[in-house]
Amino acid sequence: MGLTIVFLLYLALKTISFSLIQLFNIFGLIVIYFAMRRGEIFGACFGAGCGLIQDAFSLGVFGVAGLSKTILGFLAGYIAKKIDVTPPVRNFLFILFLLGFEFLLWALLSSFIFSQKLFIGKTFYSLQPLTTAIFGSILFILLGKIKYLSPDLR
């Protein structure tokens, strides 16, 4: 259901403006969600898979998103195991920290490989961790409430 919501949002944003897609790190959010539920090993493997799919649909060096999402999945699973990240504010900070870290890692890797400054200053890219964290924490709360009300989904 979460995936459907995310995908519908993606299509809606694409219809309004292509630039708006840059506001949301949808793949990152999916990786965090599954890593929180299944642990760091699953998170790392799932992150690697998602990242490589993302790389396959992008122009550039294959493996950059894969590497950053592997580390993202691992960290998400590891932190979620040590700290309870379900309270809304903590959940928001948790997602913001992870996506900010992934963004930084991806930017560093890309600029290191391409040996040039990334075009992120005048685009929505720099806002991506914040907007995704806001949307993600709201989505996770809603999903938690739906599962609480429907025991079959637990």
Binding site: I41, A44, G66
Partner: peptide, 17 residues
């Protein structure tokens, strides 16, 4: 174990890059 898996995954992708 989990750390080893992470290292292996990171290594594979670094090789790929």
């Amino acid at each position: 174990k989990s750390l080893l898996i992470l290292i292996v995954l990171v290594f594979i992708q670094l090789v790929l890059i």
